[in-house]
């Protein structure tokens, strides 16, 4: 059973700047939700607070009934939350397969040995890197690195997956491959929070969207409806277009 994610009154300051102000929202099990907003609106900060990379200054994060607000990243990972990074971060001294095995070995179930190797191969096959576990990470193309990072995130067998601009920087044909992959995740019952700028992907994948601007949630609801709201268009494009 997939756990759901609850954020309530999340707050973060950097010195005098309030990066995230009173952000609350929830994801239902198996839902794919877009977290949108212009650059600097606090999306990645929210992601970092969920995954434990940044401590919260206020509010709480819950997975199901478990409070993970004050947990360090490695404990958050054990509670079924996995993520990718805004700029892809492969581990260069590990092979492609070892990158994936890492999450298997230290994720929820702690697989090791032959079982972990088989599971890693399975995850690689799922993202389209079948039989390439022995390769060096440095030899992968950009999209393949992104695929590997997705496989690494999936290998910890998460209930909730945080994708931070995972589709950014892909060319049109790669983009449709990427969108297909995320759609497959949904089929597996994983709850996905998607930070994304590519509207095509958001429309294709997300039934629901949350829009942030200047650290606050300004809109929330079904994608098509939210993206048409004047406040959202204004936040993205400025007053003239509203």
């Amino acid at each position: 059973m997939s756990a759901e994610l609850h954020l309530s009154h999340l707050h973060k300051r950097f010195g005098g700047l309030v990066a995230v102000r009173d952000v609350s929202f929830s994801l239902a099990p198996g839902e794919v939700v877009g977290l949108l907003g212009p650059n600097g609106s606090g999306k990645t900060t929210v992601m970092n607070m969920i995954s434990g990379a940044l401590p919260c200054d206020g509010g709480s994060v819950k997975v199901g009934t478990t409070d993970i607000t004050r947990m360090k990243p490695h404990r958050v990972a054990k509670h079924g939350v996995a993520r990718t990074f805004q700029l892809v971060r492969p581990l260069p001294t590990l092979t492609v397969g070892e990158n994936v095995m890492l999450s298997l070995a230290f994720g929820k179930k702690r697989h090791w040995g032959r079982e972990a190797r088989d599971l890693a191969e399975e995850k690689l096959a799922f993202v389209g890197l079948e039989g390439r576990g022995g390769e060096q990470v440095g030899n992968l193309t950009y999209i393949d690195q992104k695929r590997m990072e997705m496989a690494r995130a999936l290998a910890s067998e998460p209930d909730i997956l945080l994708l931070d601009e995972w589709l950014a920087g892909l060319n049109p044909s790669e983009l449709s491959i990427g969108i297909e992959l995320v759609r497959h995740l949904q089929g597996q019952g994983i709850t996905v929070l998607l930070v994304e700028h590519i509207m095509e992907a958001v429309r294709a994948l997300c039934s629901r969207c949350i829009v942030m601007s200047a650290g606050e949630v300004i809109a929330e609801g079904p994608s098509a409806e939210v993206l048409a709201r004047p406040a959202v268009i204004k936040a993205y494009l400025g007053d003239d277009h509203a």
């Binding site: 001294t93 590990l94 890492l102 690494r152």
Partner: peptide, 17 residues
């Protein structure tokens, strides 16, 4: 494996659990 990952990128290692 964990040690090598830590040498490469501590943040990623921590997020892997």
């Amino acid at each position: 494996l964990a040690l090598k990952a830590i040498g490469d990128d501590e943040t990623v290692a921590a997020h892997a659990g």
